[in-house]
Write a protein that binds this DNA or RNA. Structure first.
Lengths: 238, 238
DNA sequence: CCTACCGATCGGTAGG
DNA sequence: CCTACCGATCGGTAGG
């Protein structure tokens, strides 16, 4: 629910017509910045602007202004606007998959593997809201090859969750009608986090991760070896 | 997971330069269509194109071509491109709220109210994928007043689910750590359906609605009066 | 419902 | 890293 950002909607009707218009003030220094940091500053500005205004509504001049240079000067550091988007979106999927590999590798208990996978999924979507938000909204803004790359990685990522759930079902640890719907619902509720989470709100990232871990175990129909349902406090049964 | 559409990416490099270029063929009749249907045909075309290409990448000429007229002729039927988007997005939220009111009014059992609310939510997102998809992606493309209208209705809609869950908790029918996270997770997993569902796939709309109803009851920690967990077949307990 | 057209925007290149 | 600029696009209006 709710949108990620609200700043910067609509082309900035800034100081048009009427007397002396300087250029818009540049944010501090235009030079003197280490060349190595310049690229990452550009990427970060692009990410923020893509999230706030959308890829198509963000101009190279906007991105340049955010790092203190003019639009055309960006082409010394990046080859195109599209490249900036593709890097964000492919990098996001690579990170999610890498985090998932770590999450499942620390334990053999399928319940714990699912919990850790979901916690990693939630942590990423809370800590990297903008990446996740842009990654989920701008798929159609990619060219075909990059779109295929991102969708292929998404498919791989989903399969990891689905096969984990199938394994749990085979072991008798999970009980679901459809592993696919279970994995979709678990992943989709995590994706939603990127839309409404903000630091300093009702929940910390840790609390969020833990609660969604519980919810995922409920969705999976997980019961520990003694037969209790997931997410129940030991003493709360009727 | 996955994007809603893939047609029509990128401005259509269609027959530029070189010999005889007629205009692009118009899709059958340009006139002879009942005036009453014209507006809804335009809305439908706009919806399809907004979903496939994004609002900003869809031109009035695209929409016109889809209904067999030229871009400027659309202004006989609509006042602006923006109006087309606003109608879709506000109408979507109005329908979801109306469906929810019906869903909760048929029973007093809070479990059944939640089930029916979720089923209605899922049915809408499966049957009106494009509306839901556009409604969730183009919030930032609205002007401020319309964006406020949509977000206000979203907030109302979420509150209906949250208060239902809180009521269930108070009655001892549900058990959750946070009603807000429960409602967000339930709504977000439904929103996800609009991204990946397609008719003729593995599940029918009815199957989907039922399974997500079960999942929502699990998330809510629902147990029937006899103490069994939601979504379990009566004989499946260990 | 159409053509002609205005005014504005924008990604990217030239050439310092 | 900048200015000047090209080529193309687009929402909306004029005036039939």
């Amino acid at each position: 629910m709710s949108s990620a950002q609200s700043e910067g909607r609509g082309r900035s009707h800034s100081g048009s017509r009427g007397g002396s218009y300087e250029r818009p003030h540049r944010p501090a220094r235009a030079e003197g910045v280490p060349v190595a940091d310049r690229r990452s500053a550009i990427r970060q500005a692009a990410l923020r602007l893509f999230a706030a205004q959308g890829y198509r509504s963000t101009t190279m001049a906007d991105i340049g202004a955010a790092v203190g240079i003019r639009g055309p000067s960006l082409y010394k550091h990046v080859t195109s606007k599209h490249e900036l988007l593709a890097e964000i979106m492919i990098g996001t999927m690579e990170q999610l998959i890498a985090d998932n590999i770590v999450a499942v590798s620390g334990t053999d208990d399928v319940r714990e593997q699912l919990r850790r996978s979901v916690e990693a999924h939630i942590r990423y979507h809370a800590r990297h809201r903008l990446e996740a938000f842009v990654g989920n909204r701008e798929i159609g803004s990619l060219d075909q090859p990059d779109q295929d790359r991102v969708l292929g990685r998404r498919s791989d990522y989903e399969r990891r969750f689905r096969e984990l759930i199938e394994q749990g079902v085979a072991e008798g640890a999970f009980h679901v009608q459809s592993a696919r719907i279970a994995s979709y619902s678990i992943l989709d509720m995590g994706i939603g986090v990127a839309s409404w989470f903000h630091e300093g709100g009702e929940f910390s990232v840790d609390q969020l991760a833990y609660q969604y871990g519980d919810i995922a175990l409920r969705i999976a129909g997980a019961r520990p070896h003694d037969g209790r349902s997931a997410g129940e406090e030991p003493g709360s049964l009727p």
